[in-house]
Design a protein around this nucleic acid. Sequence first.
DNA 1: ATTTGTCATAGTTTCTACTTATTGCTGCCA
DNA 2: TGGCAGCAATAAGTAGAAACTATGACAAAT
Lengths: 309, 309
Amino acid sequence: MTNITFKQLRYFEALARHGHFGRAADACAISQPALSMQIKELENELGTILIERGARQIRLTNFGEAFALRVRDILRSVDELGELARASREGLVGRLRIGIIPTVAPYLLPTIIGKLNQSYKDLDIHVRETLTPKLIQELSDGRIDTAIVALPVSEHSFTEVGLFEENFMLVRPSDDADKPVPEAELLHEMRLLLLEEGHCFRDQALSFCGVASARPWDGLDGSSLSTLVQMVGVGLGVTLLPEMAVAVETRSASVSVANFREPQPTRTIGMIWRKSSPLSVQLLRLSELVRQSALSLRSEQGFDTVTTH
Amino acid sequence: MTNITFKQLRYFEALARHGHFGRAADACAISQPALSMQIKELENELGTILIERGARQIRLTNFGEAFALRVRDILRSVDELGELARASREGLVGRLRIGIIPTVAPYLLPTIIGKLNQSYKDLDIHVRETLTPKLIQELSDGRIDTAIVALPVSEHSFTEVGLFEENFMLVRPSDDADKPVPEAELLHEMRLLLLEEGHCFRDQALSFCGVASARPWDGLDGSSLSTLVQMVGVGLGVTLLPEMAVAVETRSASVSVANFREPQPTRTIGMIWRKSSPLSVQLLRLSELVRQSALSLRSEQGFDTVTTH
DNA sequence: ATTTGTCATAGTTTCTACTTATTGCTGCCA
DNA sequence: TGGCAGCAATAAGTAGAAACTATGACAAAT
C-alpha cells in the first residue's frame, strides 16, 4: 500500500522546478529541513533515489525526471477536483432526475425543460413519468432527485413545495355546451369517464363527486386524458380535465368545456424531494422556475375565460 | 490552494465503494469516527457535500459520483508511481547516456549496445562520442550518466572502474613486415603518424616514445585511426593502433602489424561515473557487462597472434 | 415504546510534520 | 593549504493532525 502523501508530491514538484532545497522550501512556505525530510521520506517509500545531491547543486535522477512528469499530472488532476467542486457549488450540475405524474407531464414538461436547458447549460436532465406511489418510492431510493406530483404526499422525509393550484373542468360533448353545469353530486349519475386505477387525478375527481371508489361503468377507464376526451367527443360520457390539460386535449375533439360553480374542484401541484438531499437549495430555486413556467403557460392559454370548442 | 490529502481521497473512495461508513473504515483499517471526520474535512475543503447521510443508508450525491470517478483515476495514477519506482529499482530503466572516446567507440560500441539491448529491454540508450575532457565535463554536468575512457582520469568526484588493458601495436607499410620491430625510442625518428591534438591516444603514444609533445611532421595528424592506417598503407609513415582497432582498421590497407617487445605499450580502458550517481549499483553491473563484451571481442579476433595483412 | 443500526461528537492520546539551531560536507578563494 | 561560504542533513523540541475509545443522537424496524 502506497503511503505517499500529496504534500510530498507538492514538495517534490517544487524541488524539481527550483532545483534547490532552500528555494523550493520558500516556495512551499516551509523551512528547508521540513522539505528535506519529506523528500527523504518520499524516497524511502518509493525505495528509490529521486534527487542526486551534489555539494554545489542538485539534479533529478533519471527516475526522478520520469517521476516528476507523472507527479505534475497528478497534481493537476487534484487541483481540478477543487475546480469541479467550486463549479458544482454554483448551481445544478451533472445529472438531474425529475419524476412527474402523467396528468401533468405532457403540459408542463416542454416548458420546464426548455427553461431548464436555458438556465443550466450542460445539465443532463432525466425524466421519469409514472404514478405517484412509484415516484415516491423512487425518490426514497434515490433513483430520482425530485418529483412533481399532486400534494399532499405527507411523507415526513420529504420536503413539499406547492407550485400552483389548478381547477378541474367539466368536459362534455359539444352538444351539451348550453346545458347548465351540473352540481358535483349529479356527476356520477352521468357517465363519468375517468383514468384507470392508480392515477391520483382519478381519486381527486372521485372525491370531488363525493363518491368513495366503486363505479358502475367499468371497462371504460382511460389510460390517458387524451383518450378520455376522445371518448367524450363521441358521446360516451363526460369527464374532468385539469385546467392545464384543456388547451391541448380539447383541440381535436368536438367537446365543450365548462367551469364548475364555486366551490370549484381543485388540486395542488407541487414539488417534493428528500429532506436530506444536498440539492435542496438548488431544488428550491428550481421550484421557483417551475412555478414561473406554469404561470406563463396559464396566461398564454387564458384560463379566465370558459373555453368552448 | 487545495489542501486535500491523499488519505481523504482513499477514505472517500472506500466509502463510495462500500456505501457504509463502518465497513469503509474497516477496509481502511481505521475506526469509523476517524473516517467520518476525514470525509467531513474533505467536504469542508471542497465546500460541497459528497455524501447524503440517511438514517439507514448513505448515498453519493450527484457531485459525489462525479467526484468518485476522478478520484479513482487519481488513486490509480498514484499507485502507478509506486510501480514505476519498483520497476526502476530492479534495473536500468528509462534513458542511459553513455559517453565514449573515439578510439574505442567504433570497436566496442556495437557489441555493448547489442548486449545492452538484450539485457535491458526498453532501455533508451544515448551515446556521446567525443574527447575525454568533454566527456568529463558532461559527466560532471549530468549530461551523461557514465563514460568509457582511458584511465586514470583522477577526478576525485568520479568512481573509476577498470575494464581491460590493451596493447598498442605497430602498424607499418606491408613491405616492412619482415624488418625487426624498432625500439620505442627509435619511433620518433621514423615518420610517426598520430591523431590530432586532444585525443588521449595521441598523448599515450607520445609518452611511450619518450617524447614530450612537439613533433617535426606537422600537418599529417589524422582525425581518425582509420585515416592514419590508410596513410601508413600508402607509405607516409608508421603509426600505433590500440589492439582492439587492429582487426577492423587493417582490413582494407596493405599494412603489417607487429607487437612491440616487452615492456609493451599499453593503456587501461575503464568506466567512470559520478560517485553521487544513484545509478552506481547498476553502472557497476553494467561495467561487468562491458568487460565481458571486450573479452569476447578479443577472443573472437585472436589477439594472441601477430596479425599481418 | 423499545431496540437496532448507523453516523456524529467528545475527550484523550499518539504520531506526524513543522520550527530553529547546529553540524557536516564540498568547492572556492586567498 | 587553510579558512570561508553555500547548501543540505541532522538534532531537539513543539504544535497540530489524526487516530482511538466511549458516548450521543436519530431514524427505522420490531
